[in-house]
């Protein structure tokens, strides 16, 4: 066989992709719906209880903290990665998944020390979320207030 030409490469990539087992899209979506919905329901229960005693903004903030705690604890106990393997974005999209993305590298790199391991790697996945969230919010707010405001 000689070196592959561009056309050969393209044909091969098409061929190889045709051998990929199909992703179970419906099953995955259903599992994400059920698990993601369940997590949001738990958050709503907590929010409901807190709202009886606290002003709304404070109750919402505290709900976020509690959900992050739950996600962190389940990651520490080695349960959240199983939920994620099962439910995909149903586990990753809620704020508990954000907690999982912070705790999993923090734990993983503990063996490399607490400064350059745990702390440096903590926002490996969550960092981009904060960066893009903040930048999009900045642009959206500028547009909303100064351009269309």
């Amino acid at each position: 066989m000689t070196r592959p030409r561009t056309r050969e490469k393209e044909e091969y990539i098409k061929l190889a992709t045709s051998f990929h087992p199909p992703r179970p899209i419906l099953r995955n979506a259903l599992l994400a719906f059920l698990v993601g919905g369940a997590i949001c329901t738990v958050a709503q229960v907590i929010l409901g209880v807190l709202s009886t005693k606290l002003p709304r903004v404070q109750a919402q903030a505290m709900t976020s903290s509690i959900m992050v705690f739950l996600g962190a604890l389940l990651t520490g106990l080695g349960v959240y990665d199983e939920i994620g393997r099962f439910a995909g974005m149903g586990a990753a999209l809620p704020i508990t998944g954000f907690a999982n993305s912070v705790v999993s590298p923090a734990m993983e790199f503990k063996r490399e020390g607490f400064v350059l391991g745990v702390s440096a790697r903590m926002f490996q996945v969550a960092g981009p979320v904060i960066v893009y969230g903040s930048l999009s919010a900045l642009i959206v707010t500028i547009l909303r207030v100064y351009v269309f405001g």
Binding site: S64, G76, F98, S104, A106, K110, F114, A126
Partner: peptide, 23 residues
Amino acid sequence: ATASGLMAAIVFGYLMAVLFNPK
């Protein structure tokens, strides 16, 4: 506005790393 989630992630992230090892 998002401090409660971020601070919780830092505090509990660090705490869990102290308490647990990856399985």
